[in-house]
Design a protein around this nucleic acid. Sequence first.
DNA 1: GAGTGGTCTAGACCACATT
DNA 2: ATGTGGTCTAGACCACTCT
Lengths: 242, 242
Amino acid sequence: MTKKTPLPKPVSYAPPKPLYERVKSHVLKRISSGEWPAYCRLPSEHTLVKDMGISRMTIHRALRELTQAGFLERIQGVGTFVASLKTAPKNLELKDIDQIVHSRGSKYSCKIHFLQAELADADAAKLIAVSEGDQVFRSYFVHCENDVPLMLEDRHVNAALFPEYLRMDFHDATAENCLSTRFALLSHEHSIQAKISDAEVSHFLALDTATACLVINRRTWFGERIVSTARMVYPGNRYQLN
Amino acid sequence: MTKKTPLPKPVSYAPPKPLYERVKSHVLKRISSGEWPAYCRLPSEHTLVKDMGISRMTIHRALRELTQAGFLERIQGVGTFVASLKTAPKNLELKDIDQIVHSRGSKYSCKIHFLQAELADADAAKLIAVSEGDQVFRSYFVHCENDVPLMLEDRHVNAALFPEYLRMDFHDATAENCLSTRFALLSHEHSIQAKISDAEVSHFLALDTATACLVINRRTWFGERIVSTARMVYPGNRYQLN
DNA sequence: GAGTGGTCTAGACCACATT
DNA sequence: ATGTGGTCTAGACCACTCT
């Protein structure tokens, strides 16, 4: 059989989504409409296979992805249930300082106040989980938006893990960037506080009066070890996280 | 062939992980060791099938999950690559106030200052995307840890979407809880600021002096519509996010 | 024992990109 | 034309739970 002119494609107003996506939509629609409320039991895979005329692997993939996304809970030998919706995650994504400044359409710059090796005192040793007296690297930067200070970054780096740190070029890349190009699979841990600026912060951020500041503390892990800990201080009147 | 006594299981010190998990570990190990750096091309699925003696669907599942997790990038017709690691997400999960207090081993309580219907002024209308003059619900709660104020919650609720709001029992469940049991598939949008307490905040949080506070603004969406907007104020000296 | 979900396979067809 | 990833199937075996 010879193929002549390809038939004009049948006009299709339904986007040709993969089958497993259609199964996911099918389930999500019933959840969001309230037809299947929290803790409600779903039809078994076998039943869905029969009802939808789709093979089990495809049904299973759809349900597995909805489970990974937190919409369903599955128990082997028991069944599939709509997840408790209290689980709705409330996440905030923290962006890098250079990205923040660029996304505001401003010019980014960074002033290096110091960048040196130190011997860890008790506090520093605790911050990056080394012994007191070990060598650590410390960087003290002020990140600016159109030359106005926007963030003070006081960072300790594990010298044993990242010996090249002092020789990096921090005008091309932030410390964050250096870390993520040097190490794969980093993970982060954060805490956020509100604090009044003290003399040190006011000086480096050029604040004339005491100002409420956002303080983000970030610990960066490479596997089981802490590579770096940073204290990042944003003046509350110049920046808000979002 | 008859099956008699099942052979004593071979002593295995390796945990019997599923094959696709082993494939994932295999790949992740090479990424984290630096053997496969960012942008490096991975062997094709076909090659992995041959090398590891595992079927293509299983290999494919492993690579798909690593892609979803952000470790790989795949291009149809081209190949699989190690993702740029700048993409490492830096997320902060925001917990519910009752969870926070309980996880600190303290007693949670909530004082309702008011809970009423109002006509939206310009500000309120903007907050939940209704027209000026529309009816909105407003709740004004102080959440306490061992009867010490820990958070002021000033909330506007779209009355058309959630008409039962005023009749809920807020001693059993927080407003957040009510929202998530009433609506499935909510999504949230946040901003975080640092602000000095003003007279209103100082009064309701029982602060004797001006204090730096964390202010979290949360908008809660149900599909395309805003259900509720909340301003949550935490005194910086009593709480930090983590 | 019957029903559930979890994994795995071998093979198939497709869309896409490169040569 | 070849090689890549994306999807889908039919059937299989397993571990688990409930009755």
